[in-house]
Design a binder for these strands. Structure first.
Lengths: 209, 209
DNA sequence: TTAATAACAAACCAACTAGTCTGTCAAACA
DNA sequence: TGTTTGACAGACTAGTTGGTTTGTTATTAA
């Protein structure tokens, strides 16, 4: 028996399940939930029907799991949690905007925002999806509201603006811009509209006297 | 023979074709192109396979026709042509925004913008769709650029702003806001973010001295 | 060491779906 | 008025798709 254990048919339920979730997430990102094929996921993961229906009772349950276990953490890590570390809202939000532009230019140009994609596709079709998705938007909105409020308390953000409104507007604009890029398949729209969004952010700043 | 012609089995190719297009447009609006079923359209129109494939060679061709013959004119009438009659960009755009809010509150709340829906779904999936759709966005963008430029020439819009950028930003924000409403299934997001969009529009105005 | 069970593999199935094909009937045309 | 043709009706088909079932093997508990 060698010290190096050579296992070809290792069984690890967690790994298998996660593999399915990851591939499903990719597929949904590209083709939407309706375009997602169970068989397609199995082909990409080199698994079989037996494995799939051992871990998920239906395609719909897979969809829910993708939202709860992949999409939600992804949004939290990428967009929500960074907000909590923000000290100077205006500067840091502009920086986040630029980061997003670069990242999206690199790989998300033709896929768009996974959260927004699912929102537009599934909201009118299935209430169980809509509620899960709305919950994520809500988390994002709340975090952004808190960030802006913190900025107001620190005297960095105009006290006259309404954080709830501005937060909603920022999220909406951001998603709208990404959506435009997706159609043109280039980041020009991001630079065009991004400049204006940056101007808008600047307009929220308390001018230092 | 009566003066009133009573025809039950009237055949009118144009009417039939248009009926298919209209129903298909509704279906795509609700379920997306991938969720659109040829059989579903036939059921709603009380037509048959024979009729359908007499007018369209495939589901894809139907999709193209829906974009060219229903969606494009709809966007032109609803969003693009009104821009051409605008005399005072800021005031009139704000008014259009309010009109849109009321109209969307009434019926489009859960369906969203048909153009944006198709964009997000089909852009990564099919180039023939993407190009058709991008063309419509382009028309809209150009019209809005011209409107802003006209406002600048008339001394109503700040000369410092870049119409290309602002136009893109306005379209993106608008679509982003509608997308948010779709998820929450209420128009609160429209009022929240709309107030900010209005502020932004005001910031483009040349202050009268 | 063995029995029980979790984690799969893979053939199979029923429903669905885009598209075909043959036939029919109304309208235009000669 | 007969004939051609455009505009359908509707049965049928081949391929797809989500889901089931039965069997097998690795892992774990006793």
């Amino acid at each position: 028996m060698s010290l190096v254990t050579e296992k070809t048919n290792v069984r690890n339920a967690d790994v298998t399940r996660q593999k399915i979730l990851d591939v499903a997430f990719e597929e949904v990102l590209l083709k939407g939930y309706q375009g997602l094929r169970v068989d397609g996921v199995l082909k990409k993961t080199a698994l079989t029907k037996g494995a799939f229906y051992h871990h998920f009772s239906s395609k719909k349950e897979l969809g829910h799991a993708v939202i709860d276990e992949v999409l939600k953490p992804w949004i939290e890590n990428r967009w929500i949690n960074p907000l909590k570390a923000i000290r100077h809202p205006i500067d840091d939000l502009i920086r986040m905007l630029e980061d997003a532009r670069d990242e999206i230019s690199a790989k998300e140009l033709h896929t768009g925002c996974p959260l927004n994609n699912l929102t537009q596709e599934m909201s009118p079709l299935d209430e169980s999806f809509r509620i899960r998705i709305a919950n994520i938007w809500q988390l994002w909105h709340e975090a952004l509201v808190e960030t802006l409020q913190r900025g107001q308390k620190l005297g960095l953000v105009k006290s006259s603006i309404k954080p709830k409104n501005v937060a909603r507007f920022l999220i909406a604009s951001m998603e709208g811009i990404i959506g435009q890029c997706k159609c043109y398949m280039n980041d020009q729209a991001f630079y065009e509209a991004g400049a204006c969004l940056q101007d808008y952010l600047e307009s929220l700043r308390v001018e230092s006297t």
